[in-house]
Computed example of a mutant assay.
Amino acid sequence: MKKVIFAEFGGPEVLRLVDAEEPHAGPGRIRIAVRAAGVNPVDWRIREGQVLSAHPIALPSGVGLDASGVVDEVGEGVEGIAVGDRVFGEGASTYAEFAVLTAWARMPEGLSFEEAAGYPSVVETALRILGEVGARPGHTLLVSGASGGVGSAVLQIARERGIPVIGTAGAANQDYLRSLGARATTYGEGWVERVRQLGPVDTALDLAGSGVIRELVELTGDPHKVVSIADLDAPRSGVRFSGVAGSVPAALAEAVDLISRGKLHIPVEKSYPLAEAAAAHADSQAGHARGRRVLLI
Protein backbone atom coordinates (compact mmCIF):
# COMPACT_ATOMS: atom_id res chain seq x y z
CA MET A 1 0.00 0.00 0.00
CA LYS A 2 0.98 3.66 -0.34
CA LYS A 3 1.80 5.51 2.88
CA VAL A 4 3.32 8.86 3.85
CA ILE A 5 6.26 8.67 6.28
CA PHE A 6 9.15 10.75 7.59
CA ALA A 7 12.54 9.36 8.63
CA GLU A 8 13.86 12.54 10.28
CA PHE A 9 12.38 15.56 12.00
CA GLY A 10 12.14 18.67 9.87
CA GLY A 11 10.05 20.68 7.45
CA PRO A 12 7.40 19.45 5.02
CA GLU A 13 10.14 18.26 2.67
CA VAL A 14 10.92 15.29 4.96
CA LEU A 15 7.57 13.69 4.09
CA ARG A 16 7.83 10.85 1.56
CA LEU A 17 5.25 8.64 -0.14
CA VAL A 18 6.46 5.03 0.03
CA ASP A 19 5.30 1.47 -0.46
CA ALA A 20 4.63 -0.11 2.94
CA GLU A 21 3.18 -3.25 4.47
CA GLU A 22 -0.51 -3.09 5.28
CA PRO A 23 -1.43 -2.83 8.98
CA HIS A 24 -4.00 -5.19 10.49
CA ALA A 25 -6.66 -4.79 13.12
CA GLY A 26 -5.67 -6.21 16.49
CA PRO A 27 -8.05 -6.79 19.41
CA GLY A 28 -10.36 -3.86 20.02
CA ARG A 29 -9.41 -2.20 16.73
CA ILE A 30 -10.76 -1.91 13.22
CA ARG A 31 -9.00 -1.37 9.91
CA ILE A 32 -10.38 0.88 7.21
CA ALA A 33 -9.70 1.39 3.56
CA VAL A 34 -8.97 5.09 3.93
CA ARG A 35 -10.95 7.46 1.72
CA ALA A 36 -9.75 10.71 3.31
CA ALA A 37 -7.36 11.76 6.08
CA GLY A 38 -7.59 14.95 8.11
CA VAL A 39 -4.59 17.29 8.21
CA ASN A 40 -4.14 18.69 11.74
CA PRO A 41 -1.59 21.16 13.13
CA VAL A 42 -0.50 18.43 15.55
CA ASP A 43 0.59 16.39 12.52
CA TRP A 44 3.27 18.89 11.54
CA ARG A 45 4.19 19.55 15.17
CA ILE A 46 4.90 15.80 15.47
CA ARG A 47 6.83 15.90 12.17
CA GLU A 48 9.00 18.70 13.57
CA GLY A 49 9.57 16.85 16.87
CA GLN A 50 7.84 19.57 18.92
CA VAL A 51 5.49 17.44 21.02
CA LEU A 52 7.40 14.25 21.74
CA SER A 53 6.33 14.21 25.39
CA ALA A 54 2.67 13.91 24.39
CA HIS A 55 3.25 11.99 21.14
CA PRO A 56 6.40 9.83 21.46
CA ILE A 57 7.37 8.21 18.18
CA ALA A 58 10.07 6.04 16.66
CA LEU A 59 11.57 6.96 13.30
CA PRO A 60 10.74 6.27 10.56
CA SER A 61 7.15 7.16 11.39
CA GLY A 62 3.84 7.39 9.65
CA VAL A 63 1.74 10.53 9.80
CA GLY A 64 -1.85 11.36 10.64
CA LEU A 65 -4.46 10.77 13.34
CA ASP A 66 -7.82 11.30 11.64
CA ALA A 67 -9.46 9.41 8.81
CA SER A 68 -12.70 8.32 7.22
CA GLY A 69 -13.26 5.23 5.16
CA VAL A 70 -14.82 1.79 4.81
CA VAL A 71 -14.28 -0.93 7.40
CA ASP A 72 -12.48 -3.93 5.93
CA GLU A 73 -11.17 -5.69 9.08
CA VAL A 74 -12.73 -6.01 12.52
CA GLY A 75 -10.51 -6.99 15.43
CA GLU A 76 -11.30 -9.47 18.17
CA GLY A 77 -13.77 -8.18 20.74
CA VAL A 78 -15.18 -5.39 18.58
CA GLU A 79 -18.97 -5.32 18.45
CA GLY A 80 -21.53 -3.17 16.70
CA ILE A 81 -19.48 -2.57 13.56
CA ALA A 82 -19.08 -4.67 10.43
CA VAL A 83 -17.02 -4.92 7.28
CA GLY A 84 -18.45 -2.46 4.76
CA ASP A 85 -19.58 0.16 7.31
CA ARG A 86 -18.67 3.79 6.59
CA VAL A 87 -16.87 5.26 9.60
CA PHE A 88 -14.72 8.15 10.74
CA GLY A 89 -12.38 8.27 13.69
CA GLU A 90 -8.86 8.37 15.08
CA GLY A 91 -5.92 6.02 14.79
CA ALA A 92 -2.30 6.19 13.69
CA SER A 93 -0.52 6.67 10.36
CA THR A 94 -3.76 7.63 8.62
CA TYR A 95 -1.98 9.22 5.64
CA ALA A 96 -2.16 5.83 3.92
CA GLU A 97 -4.37 3.58 1.84
CA PHE A 98 -5.20 1.46 4.92
CA ALA A 99 -5.17 2.49 8.59
CA VAL A 100 -6.08 0.99 11.95
CA LEU A 101 -8.47 3.03 14.08
CA THR A 102 -8.60 3.00 17.87
CA ALA A 103 -11.81 5.08 18.10
CA TRP A 104 -14.58 5.40 15.53
CA ALA A 105 -18.22 6.10 14.83
CA ARG A 106 -20.51 5.51 11.90
CA MET A 107 -20.64 8.50 9.58
CA PRO A 108 -23.85 10.54 9.79
CA GLU A 109 -26.15 10.40 6.78
CA GLY A 110 -25.28 12.95 4.11
CA LEU A 111 -21.66 13.45 5.23
CA SER A 112 -19.02 12.79 2.58
CA PHE A 113 -15.74 11.00 3.32
CA GLU A 114 -13.92 14.25 2.56
CA GLU A 115 -15.95 16.16 5.16
CA ALA A 116 -15.94 13.37 7.75
CA ALA A 117 -12.14 13.17 7.88
CA GLY A 118 -12.05 16.73 9.18
CA TYR A 119 -14.03 16.14 12.38
CA PRO A 120 -12.49 13.65 14.86
CA SER A 121 -9.52 15.47 16.45
CA VAL A 122 -11.10 18.86 15.88
CA VAL A 123 -14.28 18.08 17.82
CA GLU A 124 -12.40 16.26 20.59
CA THR A 125 -10.09 19.26 20.99
CA ALA A 126 -12.94 21.77 20.93
CA LEU A 127 -14.92 19.90 23.58
CA ARG A 128 -11.84 19.40 25.76
CA ILE A 129 -10.66 23.00 25.79
CA LEU A 130 -14.14 24.41 26.32
CA GLY A 131 -14.24 22.32 29.48
CA GLU A 132 -10.70 23.14 30.55
CA VAL A 133 -11.14 26.89 30.19
CA GLY A 134 -14.41 26.82 32.12
CA ALA A 135 -16.57 28.36 29.39
CA ARG A 136 -20.13 28.79 30.70
CA PRO A 137 -23.47 29.94 29.29
CA GLY A 138 -23.77 33.70 29.40
CA HIS A 139 -20.02 34.22 30.01
CA THR A 140 -18.13 35.62 27.02
CA LEU A 141 -15.38 33.47 25.51
CA LEU A 142 -12.63 35.04 23.39
CA VAL A 143 -11.21 32.78 20.68
CA SER A 144 -7.93 33.89 19.13
CA GLY A 145 -7.48 32.37 15.68
CA ALA A 146 -11.10 31.32 15.36
CA SER A 147 -11.55 30.48 11.68
CA GLY A 148 -9.69 27.15 11.47
CA GLY A 149 -11.03 23.69 12.16
CA VAL A 150 -10.93 23.80 15.96
CA GLY A 151 -12.18 27.38 15.98
CA SER A 152 -15.08 26.48 13.70
CA ALA A 153 -16.06 23.68 16.07
CA VAL A 154 -15.61 25.82 19.22
CA LEU A 155 -17.81 28.60 17.86
CA GLN A 156 -20.64 26.25 16.88
CA ILE A 157 -20.54 24.20 20.08
CA ALA A 158 -20.43 27.40 22.12
CA ARG A 159 -23.44 28.75 20.25
CA GLU A 160 -25.33 25.53 20.93
CA ARG A 161 -24.48 25.84 24.64
CA GLY A 162 -25.42 29.51 24.97
CA ILE A 163 -21.85 30.75 25.36
CA PRO A 164 -21.27 34.17 23.73
CA VAL A 165 -18.06 34.30 21.65
CA ILE A 166 -15.73 37.01 20.38
CA GLY A 167 -13.48 35.65 17.65
CA THR A 168 -10.36 37.02 15.99
CA ALA A 169 -9.30 36.09 12.47
CA GLY A 170 -7.98 37.64 9.27
CA ALA A 171 -9.99 40.25 7.40
CA ALA A 172 -11.16 37.70 4.82
CA ASN A 173 -12.77 35.52 7.51
CA GLN A 174 -14.80 38.11 9.43
CA ASP A 175 -18.12 37.25 7.78
CA TYR A 176 -17.38 33.55 8.28
CA LEU A 177 -17.00 34.04 12.03
CA ARG A 178 -20.22 36.05 12.16
CA SER A 179 -22.03 33.28 10.28
CA LEU A 180 -21.07 30.96 13.17
CA GLY A 181 -22.55 33.33 15.74
CA ALA A 182 -19.44 35.15 16.91
CA ARG A 183 -18.74 38.84 17.32
CA ALA A 184 -15.73 39.17 15.06
CA THR A 185 -12.67 41.38 14.78
CA THR A 186 -9.29 41.20 13.09
CA TYR A 187 -5.97 40.45 14.74
CA GLY A 188 -2.93 42.66 14.27
CA GLU A 189 -2.08 46.05 15.72
CA GLY A 190 -4.79 47.41 18.00
CA TRP A 191 -6.64 44.09 18.30
CA VAL A 192 -6.88 44.22 22.10
CA GLU A 193 -8.72 47.53 22.00
CA ARG A 194 -10.99 46.25 19.24
CA VAL A 195 -11.88 43.26 21.44
CA ARG A 196 -12.60 45.56 24.40
CA GLN A 197 -15.00 47.53 22.24
CA LEU A 198 -16.96 44.33 21.63
CA GLY A 199 -17.40 43.70 25.34
CA PRO A 200 -15.77 42.24 28.46
CA VAL A 201 -14.09 38.83 28.23
CA ASP A 202 -14.47 36.08 30.83
CA THR A 203 -12.35 33.27 29.34
CA ALA A 204 -10.06 32.92 26.32
CA LEU A 205 -8.65 30.28 23.99
CA ASP A 206 -5.44 30.61 21.96
CA LEU A 207 -5.79 28.45 18.86
CA ALA A 208 -3.17 30.05 16.62
CA GLY A 209 -0.03 30.39 18.74
CA SER A 210 0.61 33.89 17.41
CA GLY A 211 2.21 35.30 20.55
CA VAL A 212 -0.92 36.68 22.22
CA ILE A 213 -0.83 34.93 25.60
CA ARG A 214 0.09 38.06 27.56
CA GLU A 215 -2.80 39.99 25.99
CA LEU A 216 -5.28 37.17 26.62
CA VAL A 217 -4.29 37.13 30.29
CA GLU A 218 -4.69 40.91 30.38
CA LEU A 219 -8.17 40.70 28.85
CA THR A 220 -9.42 37.96 31.19
CA GLY A 221 -7.52 39.17 34.24
CA ASP A 222 -6.40 35.66 35.19
CA PRO A 223 -4.00 33.19 33.51
CA HIS A 224 -6.18 30.32 34.77
CA LYS A 225 -8.97 31.61 32.50
CA VAL A 226 -6.83 31.10 29.37
CA VAL A 227 -6.01 27.83 27.57
CA SER A 228 -3.71 27.41 24.55
CA ILE A 229 -3.39 24.54 22.10
CA ALA A 230 -0.76 26.28 19.98
CA ASP A 231 1.79 28.14 22.12
CA LEU A 232 4.23 25.74 23.79
CA ASP A 233 5.54 28.62 25.93
CA ALA A 234 2.10 29.38 27.42
CA PRO A 235 2.91 27.69 30.78
CA ARG A 236 5.63 30.29 31.38
CA SER A 237 2.80 32.80 31.80
CA GLY A 238 0.79 30.49 34.04
CA VAL A 239 -1.49 29.50 31.14
CA ARG A 240 -2.46 25.90 30.56
CA PHE A 241 -1.22 24.24 27.37
CA SER A 242 -3.70 21.54 26.37
CA GLY A 243 -2.18 18.76 24.30
CA VAL A 244 -3.44 15.45 25.68
CA ALA A 245 -6.66 14.08 24.23
CA GLY A 246 -9.64 13.17 26.36
CA SER A 247 -12.29 10.60 25.43
CA VAL A 248 -12.31 10.34 21.65
CA PRO A 249 -15.29 7.93 21.51
CA ALA A 250 -17.39 10.37 23.58
CA ALA A 251 -16.33 13.24 21.32
CA LEU A 252 -17.24 11.28 18.18
CA ALA A 253 -20.66 10.46 19.65
CA GLU A 254 -21.27 14.15 20.34
CA ALA A 255 -20.05 15.05 16.86
CA VAL A 256 -22.51 12.61 15.29
CA ASP A 257 -25.33 14.09 17.36
CA LEU A 258 -24.46 17.71 16.50
CA ILE A 259 -23.95 16.97 12.79
CA SER A 260 -27.18 14.97 12.58
CA ARG A 261 -29.11 17.84 14.17
CA GLY A 262 -27.60 20.40 11.82
CA LYS A 263 -25.73 22.15 14.65
CA LEU A 264 -22.19 21.50 13.44
CA HIS A 265 -20.64 21.85 10.01
CA ILE A 266 -16.91 22.23 9.41
CA PRO A 267 -16.12 23.14 5.81
CA VAL A 268 -13.22 21.66 3.89
CA GLU A 269 -11.12 24.56 2.64
CA LYS A 270 -8.87 22.46 0.43
CA SER A 271 -8.28 18.82 -0.49
CA TYR A 272 -5.02 17.31 -1.69
CA PRO A 273 -4.00 13.95 -3.18
CA LEU A 274 -1.96 11.73 -0.86
CA ALA A 275 1.21 12.49 -2.82
CA GLU A 276 0.87 16.19 -1.91
CA ALA A 277 0.96 15.74 1.87
CA ALA A 278 3.96 18.08 2.08
CA ALA A 279 1.99 20.87 0.39
CA ALA A 280 -0.91 20.29 2.77
CA HIS A 281 1.47 20.62 5.74
CA ALA A 282 3.03 23.79 4.35
CA ASP A 283 -0.38 25.35 3.86
CA SER A 284 -1.52 24.28 7.33
CA GLN A 285 1.55 25.87 8.90
CA ALA A 286 0.93 29.10 7.00
CA GLY A 287 -2.40 29.47 8.84
CA HIS A 288 -5.35 31.64 7.76
CA ALA A 289 -7.51 28.57 7.15
CA ARG A 290 -11.28 28.55 6.99
CA GLY A 291 -12.26 25.09 8.18
CA ARG A 292 -10.19 22.01 7.35
CA ARG A 293 -7.61 20.59 4.97
CA VAL A 294 -7.80 16.91 4.01
CA LEU A 295 -5.94 14.34 1.93
CA LEU A 296 -7.97 12.23 -0.49
CA ILE A 297 -7.02 8.62 -1.07
Results as ranks from 00 to 15, higher is better:
F9C: 13
V18L: 06
E269N: 05
V248S: 04
E269A: 10
Y176D: 15
Y119K: 02
A146K: 04
V74W: 00
Y119C: 02
L141R: 08
A25K: 09
M107H: 06
S271K: 14
G69Y: 09
T102W: 12
V244E: 08
G62T: 09
E76I: 11
V100R: 03
R29W: 07
V143A: 08
A171Y: 03
P12Q: 04
E97D: 11
A25G: 12
P23L: 11
L130R: 02
G80K: 03
R161Y: 04
Q285D: 09
A234F: 00
V165I: 04
V217S: 01
E160H: 08
L111N: 05
L65R: 13
V74I: 02
V244Y: 05
E97M: 06
D233L: 15
Y95F: 15
V70C: 11
A280K: 12
F9M: 12
E124D: 00
L198T: 08
H55A: 06
E218G: 04
G38T: 11
D72W: 14
D206S: 01
G10Q: 10
E8C: 07
V150D: 14
S147V: 03
E160G: 00
K3W: 12
A182Y: 10
V100K: 06
L65K: 12
L296Y: 00
E48Y: 10
L15Q: 08
L177C: 10
D206T: 00
